[in-house]
Amino acid sequence: MTIRLRGHHLLCLLGYRGKGYSDGFCANMTTIYETLRTQPETELELIEGPDDICAAFPDDQVPHCENDSVYRKDEDILALAGLRIGARIRWSDVCTQVAMRVKPDDIGRLCRSCRWEPLGLCREGVGHLAGGGLLRELPGNAAKEPPT
């Protein structure tokens, strides 16, 4: 099984704690997250544009998957991590690259337009990875929406 991911979702996964845009989105994201958490040798294909996470974005919300700012964020994150679109790479190798090249303070700059950034989850996830950690078990009762 190969999971198709865009650049910024590599960092989103590090910060994922069961929160999302809808129940369907969370179910899809949790399935991907748990696959990578329990099977870190899973192969990824790094793609441009909407990926396997975007596939579950709710139809009743304004999608941002095709926004220019999201494409720029994908490019910036891949470049910083030393990765490229079209690469086929194991999740464990992505984690190694991110741990070596991405710092928690990079999140504020890279993800400043993301509604989830103020929660600090991705910043904390990058720090955890840099400290030798891996994806953690998800909390049992996380809220769906970030505070406004």
Rank of each mutant, 00 (worst) to 15 (best):
F25L: 06
C26F: 08
T30N: 05
T30H: 03
T31C: 04
Y33T: 04
Y33G: 04
T35V: 12
T35Y: 00
T35W: 00
L36T: 05
L36S: 04
L36V: 02
L36C: 07
L36N: 07
L36M: 06
R37Y: 05
R37T: 06
T38K: 13
T38L: 15
Q39D: 14
T42D: 09
T42I: 03
T42F: 02
L44I: 06
L44D: 00
E45M: 09
L46M: 02
L46I: 13
I47G: 04
D52P: 00
A55I: 03
F57H: 11
P58G: 10
V62M: 12
P63A: 02
P63F: 01
H64I: 13
C65W: 03
E66N: 14
D68E: 15
D68Q: 13
D68W: 03
S69H: 13
V70P: 01
Y71G: 01
R72Q: 15
D74R: 04
D74C: 03
E75N: 11
E75I: 12
D76Y: 06
I77L: 06
L78C: 12
L80C: 06
L80A: 12
L80N: 10
L80E: 09
G82P: 02
I85V: 15
I85F: 06
I85K: 14
G86Q: 13
G86S: 07
R88H: 14
R88A: 06
I89R: 00
W91S: 05
D93Q: 09
V94D: 00
V94C: 09
T96I: 09
V98K: 02
A99E: 07
R101L: 09
R101E: 03
V102F: 04
K103E: 15
P104M: 03
P104N: 08
D106Y: 06
D106F: 08
I107L: 11
G108Y: 03
G108P: 07
R109L: 13
R109D: 12
R109M: 11
R109K: 11
L110H: 00
L110W: 01
L110V: 08
L110N: 05
C111Y: 00
C111H: 02
C111L: 08
R112K: 14
R112D: 15
C114V: 10
R115Q: 14
R115I: 15
W116Q: 09
W116M: 05
E117T: 14
P118R: 15
P118E: 14
P118T: 14
G120S: 11
L121C: 13
L121H: 15
L121S: 15
L121E: 15
C122E: 11
C122Y: 04
R123V: 00
R123W: 06
R123S: 12
E124W: 08
E124K: 14
E124V: 07
V126S: 06
V126F: 05
H128D: 03
L129P: 00
A130T: 02
A130Q: 13
A130G: 14
